[in-house]
Write a protein that binds this DNA or RNA. Structure first.
Lengths: 251, 251
DNA sequence: CGTTCACTTGAAAGTGTTCAATTACTGTGG
DNA sequence: CCACAGTAATTGAACACTTTCAAGTGAACG
């Protein structure tokens, strides 16, 4: 496989990064330049720009001028866009280690809104700082492209979910996706808390809030999960995967 | 508005490009470097790498090694991904002036398949060539990011469509989107041919083929359009926009 | 300790799908 | 130029799934 100039990403997510700021905000994807060395000036920026948002507070809203990129250190965030008639469409839930507001880089405005689902700590990288870094470290741009490309892939899967799957498949897919992401961060993949409401989940999955409840109840009857309010425990991963019609480890 | 290092895109799509190869394959977005000058070596590549695909032929398939980026000169292309149980989800229809296979840059494999809907002429830019160009012309990377970011925005709208809109809204939105894209290329926005089948449309919109037919029939009864097989004529743009619940010129 | 909000559950009503049958077009070969 | 085959599009009717509306439960929080 020829090493392309842009195709720097060997698709491996299991990078090790010993630096403290690097690990806890998960922005390591950006800290590394192409060669693999760590960009210390970026890390320096990161540790100095921490902010906390309480439940319901907005990191940014649609149309606001693009000021900063956010990396989630802890907590969780819901992103949404607005339909033309004012309704919101939730486009994603984001947990520790994920980056927000990437494509605002291009439009120079935030194209979605981001709202904290619980008390959430983020690293805020001001765009001026980021611009400087881009000049020093050309690898940064590749990393950005890698991350944006990943976002495109994620959207593609979401389109399949919304366009082809029924309610059960959607819920199962959703639970498995969460499970996986928790596993990746060394949280339990079989027992976790949902930081989002049934209504948020329904919005995200294109289902009514009531349908979300009913499907969860059905899964519980069938012994696939135990769900108690925001607490979820997966009892039969294999069956859940069968319901989702998804291979064990697809995002 | 500060001119950011990466935020090169003034969001204006009305660039003028006098070079012939530039105009007819629509890759002008990539031909320009940050300063605005045209990258002649890229253009040179473009005019030398033309290929034609017949209806039903594939430009690339999922999982194949990434060899080239494609810019459509004429005709139309359908892109799709595969669900885990083998069904296809159409992710887009692409006409002259649009770029394909961008995010394969990162994964080094094609993540979707592209199939010609009719006889279609493309410019094929081999990745090696593209890599060289990236080294000479740093602006190219910004342009790529701009284009990928645009793709993300498009996906966001599609998610709203699939997650929130009913069948009528979806069809109306679809017709308006096509209309707009034809207008942008100086084709008639009120009278055009659909190069894709009802089945393709339904797949894309998350509807059954029969539903697509029924909605088109209903639109015709109500005097919004006249549709005769693949021919569509929009008679009442305003009402169609009202049905779509969309502002006159979104996307 | 009461109010509020999120969640849950039931029943009725839509909306879109599926299945099946028919019609219309396209292309091919005589 | 016509007949035929094959595909695409259309239409009808029954059905299934999800939503909507409504009411009730339970947890959280001041």
């Amino acid at each position: 496989m020829p090493k392309h100039h842009i195709a720097i990403a060997p698709a491996s997510q299991d990078k090790n990064c010993s630096h403290i700021a690097c690990n806890d905000c998960g922005i390591y994807g950006l800290c590394h330049t192409v060669g693999g060395e760590v960009d210390l000036s970026l890390l320096d920026t990161l540790v100095k720009n921490r902010r906390t948002f309480k439940r319901g507070e907005f990191l940014y809203r649609i149309g606001q001028p693009f000021k900063a990129i956010f990396a989630i250190r802890s907590g969780s965030i819901k992103t949404a866009i607005l339909t033309d008639d004012g309704r919101a469409q939730v486009t994603g839930f984001h947990i520790a280690g994920e980056l927000l507001a990437l494509n605002a880089i291009v439009t120079n405005q935030y194209t979605s809104e981001a709202c904290a689902l619980e008390t959430t700590s983020v690293c805020e990288v001001p765009i001026e700082r980021f611009d400087e870094l881009c000049e020093i470290s050309p690898g940064l741009q590749y990393q950005m492209m890698r991350i944006m490309s990943g976002e495109i892939l994620h959207h593609q899967e979401l389109m399949v979910l919304l366009g082809k799957k029924n309610a059960e498949e959607r819920m199962a897919t959703y639970l498995l996706n969460l499970s996986q992401r928790f596993a990746k961060r060394n949280y339990s993949p079989l027992q976790f808390n949902l930081s989002m409401s049934r209504s948020d989940i329904g919005n995200y999955l294109g289902l009514a809030e009531e349908t979300v409840c009913r499907i969860l109840a059905r899964f519980q009857e069938e012994g696939l999960i135990v769900s108690q309010r925001r607490k979820v425990q997966i009892n039969d991963l294999a069956k859940l995967q069968a319901v989702a019609h998804t291979k064990p480890m697809a995002i």
